[in-house]
């Protein structure tokens, strides 16, 4: 086990945990996680993964930091306004933990580039804010055998599930993207900033459990919460044999973007 003195200190509270230990910490240090969307969810995920010492963190986003982000996207500071989110996040991560290798993917994930990008990672965090991207990430992970964590937040509520190959996928549950504006987005309905932290840290935890191969993942179940009443719930799921992408007769065999507009935040 080759840890530097600094690493031994930095990760000592992980190493002490019997379930993590030096072996688990090594796995974390060697792991590669893609954070798709460095916003409300991606911020806490990226920070906790960096702190945990995840060896390689990929950051994918195409936005710059704007004033409305700062209420919940805690990796970005006021001084980062107008900076590319990927660069802003990269700065914080390297300041927090210089061990982390950062890969910056500036641009939208699209059907052409996503397979190439995710091929470089062990686990993908869905921190995107729109349905087409969520379905694209799901499809790309299913077709390429990658594990990912789905996360979504709105008003006071959050939901998250973890996909690993062979288990229930996001499309098993939701089928196709809802029609345009049938669902309110964060901007229309508002969101309590702190619940981004509540959900993002759960996603980060799932990623680390997946990496060390310990604990029980949120597979075949979805965790939901209502922070207003502070109720947590769990819905059991099972893989859908009619699923368009992972069912027995899949109709989606090639990546395409579901036709659906992104969050109308700026309109």
């Amino acid at each position: 086990m080759n840890f530097t003195e600094n690493q031994i200190e930095r990760y000592s509270r992980h190493i002490i945990l019997q379930e993590v230990g030096p072996e688990g910490q090594k796995k974390i240090n060697n792991a590669k996680v893609l954070v798709a969307g460095v916003g409300g969810l991606g911020s806490p995920v990226a920070l906790y993964l960096a702190a945990a010492g995840v060896g390689t963190i990929g950051l994918a986003d195409n936005d710059v930091v704007d004033m409305t982000n700062l209420q919940r996207q805690v990796i970005h500071f006021t001084s980062d306004l107008d900076k590319h989110k990927v660069e802003s996040a990269a700065d914080k991560i390297s300041a927090l933990n210089p061990d982390v290798e950062i890969r910056m993917h500036k641009g939208f994930l699209n059907p052409e580039n996503i397979a190439g990008i995710i091929s470089g990672y062990d686990f993908i965090i869905d921190g995107t804010d729109n349905f087409p991207s969520k379905f694209l990430i799901n499809d790309a992970c299913v077709l390429n055998g990658k594990a990912f964590s789905h996360g979504g937040i709105l008003r006071f509520e959050g939901q998250t599930m973890t996909y690993t190959p062979g288990n229930t996928c996001y499309r098993c549950v939701f089928g196709y993207a809802p029609p345009k504006n049938a669902v309110p987005s964060c901007s229309q309905a508002g969101v309590l900033g702190s619940i981004a932290g509540m959900l993002g840290t759960i996603q980060a935890t799932e990623a680390i459990k997946y990496i060390i191969g310990k604990g029980r993942l949120l597979t075949n179940r979805m965790l939901t919460f209502n922070a207003f009443n502070m109720n947590f719930g769990e819905v059991n799921l099972s893989a859908n044999s009619d699923c368009p992408v992972c069912g027995s007769n899949p109709v989606i065999t090639k990546l395409e973007m579901d036709e659906q507009p992104v969050c109308d935040l700026k309109q």
Partner: peptide, 14 residues
């Protein structure tokens, strides 16, 4: 403590 334990665990892991 607990660094002595941490280091011991690392030794044992190898």
């Amino acid at each position: 403590c607990p660094m002595n334990f941490v280091k011991t665990k690392i030794d044992l892991a190898a």
